[in-house]
Simulated scan of single mutants.
Amino acid sequence: MLDRIRNTASFIRNKTGFEPEAGIVLGTGLGGLIGSIRIEASLDYRDIPDFPVSTVEGHAGRLIFGLLGGKRVVAMQGRFHYYEGYTPQQVVFPVRVMKMLGIRHLFVSNASGGINPAFRTGDLMVITDHINMIPNPLVGPNIAELGVRFPDMSEPYSRKLIALADEVARREGIALQHGCYIGVTGPTFETQKEYGFYRTAGADTVGMSTTPEVIAARHMDLPVFAVSIITNMGLAGLQSSHEEVLAEGAKAEARMTRLFIGLLEAL
């Protein structure tokens, strides 16, 4: 695995000549942030050795390289999910590669279902902790060159970055929620009892991604900042659809983009 990560990173470096400072993972329907990047290079996932390929609507399937908030970034326009049939190790492979390319911070976004009754559709929630119900990507032989066998997870999301985000949000007039995200396998949306169970467990939002990527990032000692866009309210008893998720994500991503830009500028 380590050789494949190195080979893929070498391929990307040779193709782009780009040295990113920060990595960005864009969730379902949240690719609009790309329009704010001063793009210097891009690669389709299908052209990158050992990269999975996005199969979900709302995930364009490209790596974008350029400037955002005065920093050199590499952005994943579309991510991979366990429910697509990929192994947990394949899901986090791009995060491993971005670390090998030189990123020092990871920014993650997702579309999620709100299960905190104080939340509303369209809210931005800064993730302060998570509950992982997706198979752990660190199961199997440990690659010591990437990280320790038993990585600490007492601070999965950087408190420093969260504090910076709160400052940016106050300055920009962006309302933020804070809370716990639970990552589940999907691909079904949750039943009402499942929503209630997750809420009882301490979760504020639920989604089908993010936690494996964060685990891999923390394994490699990468600071993480993550935001959930609340695209539907799970406990409302209403039907959920992928189309609804895409539409609500598109409405809120301008605020998320401003937040990410402000954070990058503050680094």
Rank of each mutant, 00 (worst) to 15 (best):
K193V: 14
V214F: 08
E213P: 03
T191A: 11
T200F: 14
A216P: 01
Y195C: 13
P212C: 04
E194Q: 11
A203F: 01
G207V: 00
D221T: 13
S209Y: 02
A203P: 04
E213A: 08
G202F: 05
T200H: 14
H219L: 08
H219W: 08
M220H: 10
T205C: 13
A217Y: 03
V214P: 01
I215W: 01
M208G: 03
P212S: 06
T200N: 13
D204N: 14
M208E: 05
A201Y: 12
R199W: 10
P212W: 02
T188C: 13
A216Q: 03
V206G: 09
G207S: 08
T210S: 12
V214G: 04
E190P: 01
Y198D: 06
G196M: 11
A217C: 08
Q192D: 15
R199M: 07
F197P: 00
D204Q: 05
E190C: 02
K193H: 14
G207E: 03
S209W: 01
F197G: 03
A201H: 07
A203W: 00
T205P: 03
A216F: 05
D221F: 12
Y195T: 09
E190M: 02
E194W: 01
R199K: 15
I215N: 00
T205Q: 07
A203S: 10
Y195P: 07
Q192S: 14
Q192A: 13
A217D: 02
D221R: 15
T211S: 13
T210M: 09
V206P: 06
A201R: 13
V214L: 11
E213C: 08
T211R: 02
G202V: 08
Y198R: 09
A216H: 02
Y198I: 04
F197Y: 13
M220S: 09
M220C: 12
I215C: 03
T191M: 11
E190S: 07
K193Q: 14
E213M: 09
V206D: 10
R218G: 02
G196V: 05
D204K: 01
T188S: 15
G196Y: 05
H219V: 07
P187F: 10
G207M: 02
K193D: 14
G196T: 07
R199P: 01
F197L: 15
T200V: 15
M208S: 06
P187E: 10
T200I: 15
V206R: 09
